[in-house]
């Protein structure tokens, strides 16, 4: 039986594993963490329909029941001889396969890199990921100071569209996530005032504009077009937020109880993968596909395929579709390989 190794057990890897199994391939998933699901597993609910992230992860996990999953390990060495890919893992064990699918995804932008935003310095500055944890905990929305917030500001584009942190790209999903989270907060705390500070509101997909419309008309979220310039803390531990209201053409200041930084997707975590597999990576840390228009699933090296956010920011349906597309390409590749033997 021909074998495919999948690097990364996030949603792209799990989806591809299921499809490959169904096509009759043996699959091994190598996941660096001890739990599968990647970044999605750390989320509470998902836009646009508030589906629990756990449900999505569990459904996909079910797909992988016939695959071998190696958890808590990374690939430290890769060699290819003929049709065989040989991978040495961090524990010294060796995995061989006929093709490799890389689904290593993204890393959340470390918000403390934006020093002026005060993350890990001012208590009441948190990230979108921290807020999801708060949602998941079921303990309600409480600021790190222990207060039920009355005013909350969501800051879009943290670590995205920002050359100062080497991330020129738009992370695509943060606008929709901010609107989703803003509505969730307002739903939980109807008396609160919720603000979204955005540069451009990129609600690009079918149902997203409806979310935005509801955020305005149903939830009364305040949208301010302006990028956060800096935060500071006042003597009661509240956060002073400064930006320009670019539609009004005036500087703006407000004091809030909680600031939520919408951290973007970084490719940076893929550097090691690119080195080990000797495949091309862009300056932004995302892996380079063979063709940005017609072939997003082939890497720069034969027999190594790519899917999901390791090649750039994507939402969940795009990631899933790409995983399936990669499976189709791997299938064609392995058929040809077998025919030539």
């Amino acid at each position: 039986m021909q074998k495919v190794a999948i690097i990364g057990g996030g949603i792209a890897g799990m989806e591809a594993a299921g499809q490959l199994n169904r096509l009759g391939y043996e699959v091994v998933i190598i996941e660096k963490n001890n739990v599968p699901g990647g970044n999605v597993a750390n989320w509470d609910r998902l836009f646009p329909h508030q589906r629990p992230a756990g449900e999505v992860v569990r459904t996909l996990e079910h797909e992988t029941e016939n695959a071998t999953i190696i958890k808590g390990k990374t690939v430290i060495n890769f060699e290819k001889s003929g049709n065989i890919c040989r991978m040495e893992l961090s524990d010294g064990k060796v995995v061989t396969a006929n093709a490799v699918l890389i689904t290593t995804g993204f890393r959340l932008f470390p918000a403390e890199k934006k020093e002026e935003y005060g993350y890990k310095i001012y208590d009441n500055v948190i990230t979108s990921a921290d807020l999801e944890k708060m949602f998941s905990s079921g303990k309600g929305i409480v600021t790190p100071s222990g207060k039920i917030p009355e005013k909350i500001a969501f800051i879009h584009c943290v670590g995205s569209r920002d050359e100062k942190v080497n991330n020129r790209h738009c992370s695509k999903v943060c606008c929709a996530t901010a609107v989703k989270q803003a509505c969730e907060v307002k739903e939980a705390l109807p008396e609160s005032e919720v603000f979204c500070l955005y540069m451009d509101l990129r609600m690009f997909d079918r149902h997203y504009e409806t979310m935005y419309h509801e955020a305005q008309t149903k939830f009364g979220i305040n949208f301010i077009r302006g990028r956060l310039s800096e935060t500071s803390e006042d003597n009661s531990g509240r956060i002073v937020v400064k930006c320009e209201d670019t539609l009004a053409g005036k500087p703006l200041k407000m004091t809030v109880d909680l600031v939520v930084l919408m951290v973007g997707m970084e490719g940076e975590g893929n550097r090691k993968i690119a080195e080990v597999f000797k495949i091309q990576m862009g300056k932004d840390g995302f892996l380079d596909a063979a063709d940005d228009y017609l072939n997003m699933t082939q890497s720069s090296r034969e027999g190594i395929f790519l899917a999901g956010t390791c090649t750039g920011p994507k939402n969940i349906p795009e990631t899933i579709a790409e995983a399936r597309a990669a499976v189709s390409d791997i299938h064609v590749f392995l058929n040809r390989q077998q025919a030539s033997v």
Binding site: D245, A248, K250, P251, L252, M254
Partner: peptide, 14 residues
């Protein structure tokens, strides 16, 4: 002094 202290023209949502 021949000048006054400028008033802020920023939007102060507080």
């Amino acid at each position: 002094f021949g000048y006054t202290i400028n008033k802020s023209h920023r939007i102060d949502l507080d």
